[in-house]
Design a protein around this nucleic acid. Structure first.
Length: 428
DNA sequence: TCTGGGGTCCTAGGACCC
DNA sequence: TCTGGGGTCCTAGGACCC
């Protein structure tokens, strides 16, 4: 049986999540901002109509807020993560084979389920209806014989209101499909970014159809095996399999911009300790340990007249560990080496590298080290269970600080409506 | 005053090995 | 005239994704 993939993608996901709990946002231009209230990373249709670009800095949009009633909200990841999980649960009713590709989109493999429906179009329409009714979010559905074509179908569904949010490329005649692909710019293809699009255009490949009919070997020679695969996928040959279980991450990063300039080593250290703690939690959640930690600091590159400084340092760990105390200690040691007074710092971050799975961890040659690491794992298990029960950071290292006056700004954040008892919506 | 934070994969080139 | 050749591992840099 030929594979059929569906790509289900939520429309303006973060904005749509906010609208579920604040219907007054319907019909109005709304953007959700990145961390530190920096850039617009989600836009309602009305905001797009005002000409607001993806990634536009908020300080440049404030004028629109005054004059055109643009509403900006800080990002609320607790809310979006929970809404995402609800959507994915609904999707699992339509196929057992689901790959959660990002917070707002999933691939489904549906060839085994299609006979339950008169057509794929009907299946897609029901997916839309059910996610809309049960979760409250609008989605679009694209079907294709490969993941790349399913992605493209989703794009077509989004751009053509007449399709009512569902596009099935598998049902099209080759001639019509060719005409359709010929009307879409090549950069809309999944895996073709700005640089590759530029190079393709210089070769006379402007539309998706041009890329689809290109010679795969020539593409491989001038680009790489990745783009060659993309061409095959566009031709309807599925090369990318559904990945149902996400493999453990190979590196874990935690870093954020400061809400204000930071000058002192002690404040940088609080932030580094906080981010090392967060990264270590993610590390343990995927049953990994890490063999090295990278710490970096940066000044504000958008202020070229200020003295600039950017540096990083990798600290190898003598024994792989997931212990917040050891990782924080290493991070702070690195920071002490990096810190130079007299600069106005904008960001600090840590990256955990050289990860391995706890179960296959190499045993230490020395009994004392093995004993220590067993003790450390027990302490971390206790720490994680306390924080799971009483809330994040119920128990934390004092080095992370208590005031955190350097914390990123989030001045327009909505409540955690679905994940925090104290912040449940109230109906009056 | 004010400009995000995560990730992945591939390639090229050098070191090194037999 | 006439430099071997094949392989692995590592790193840096570049491209992409959301």
């Amino acid at each position: 049986v030929d594979p059929v993939f569906a790509l289900v993608d939520c429309n303006n996901f973060y904005v749509s999540c906010e609208r579920v709990f604040n219907p007054r946002l319907e019909g109005r231009p709304v953007v959700v901002l990145s961390n530190n209230d920096g850039c617009a990373i989600a836009r309602s249709a009305e905001a797009k109509a005002l000409g607001i670009k993806m990634g536009a800095p908020w300080f440049q949009l404030k004028d629109l807020a005054k004059k055109r009633g643009l509403i900006a909200l800080s990002s609320n990841y607790a809310l979006y993560g929970d809404m995402s999980a609800r959507v994915m649960d609904v999707l699992r009713d339509f196929s057992p084979d689901v790959e959660v590709y990002s917070i707002d989109e999933s691939f489904l493999q549906v060839e085994g389920m299609r006979r339950l429906w008169p057509s794929l179009k009907d299946m897609g329409t029901e997916i839309r209806r059910r996610v809309g009714r049960w979760v409250g979010l609008p989605v679009c559905v694209g079907f294709g014989p490969s993941k790349t074509l399913a992605k493209l179908a989703n794009h077509v569904a989004k751009k053509n209101p007449a399709l009512n949010g569902v596009c099935d490329l598998t049902a099209m005649y080759p001639y019509d499909l060719g005409r359709l692909l010929g009307s879409i710019e090549v950069e809309e293809v999944w895996g073709v970014g700005r640089r590759i699009a530029e190079k393709l255009r210089s070769m006379g490949i402007d539309t998706v159809q041009d890329l689809c009919t290109a010679d795969p070997k020539a593409i491989r020679a001038r680009f790489s095996v990745v783009l060659e695969r993309t061409v095959s996928e566009l031709q309807g040959v599925s090369c990318l399999a559904l990945d149902e279980v996400a493999p453990p991450k190979q590196q874990i990063m935690s870093s954020k911009s400061f809400g204000r300039p930071v000058l002192t080593q002690s404040e940088l250290a609080e932030a580094a300790s906080s981010y090392a703690t967060r990264a270590a939690e993610k590390l343990r959640a995927q049953q990994s340990v890490c063999g090295a930690i990278y710490v970096f600091v940066q000044t504000n590159r958008f202020r070229p007249d200020d003295p600039q400084y950017s540096a990083g340092l990798t600290i190898p760990l003598p024994n792989p560990t997931g212990d917040t105390r050891l990782l924080t200690g290493a991070a702070l040691h690195g920071l002490a080496c990096l810190f130079k007074p007299g600069y106005s710092y904008k960001k600090v971050g840590v990256m955990l590298m050289d990860l391995s799975q706890t179960a296959v961890g190499q045993q230490s040659l020395f009994d004392a080290v093995a004993e220590q690491s067993a003790h450390s794992a027990a302490v971390m298990a206790a720490l994680d269970s306390v924080n799971k029960r009483f809330g994040r950071d119920a128990l934390f290292l004092a080095s992370a600080g208590t005031q955190k006056s350097w914390a990123p700004r989030a001045e327009m954040k909505t409540p955690r409506f679905t994940t925090c008892w104290a912040e449940l919506p109230v109906v009056k």
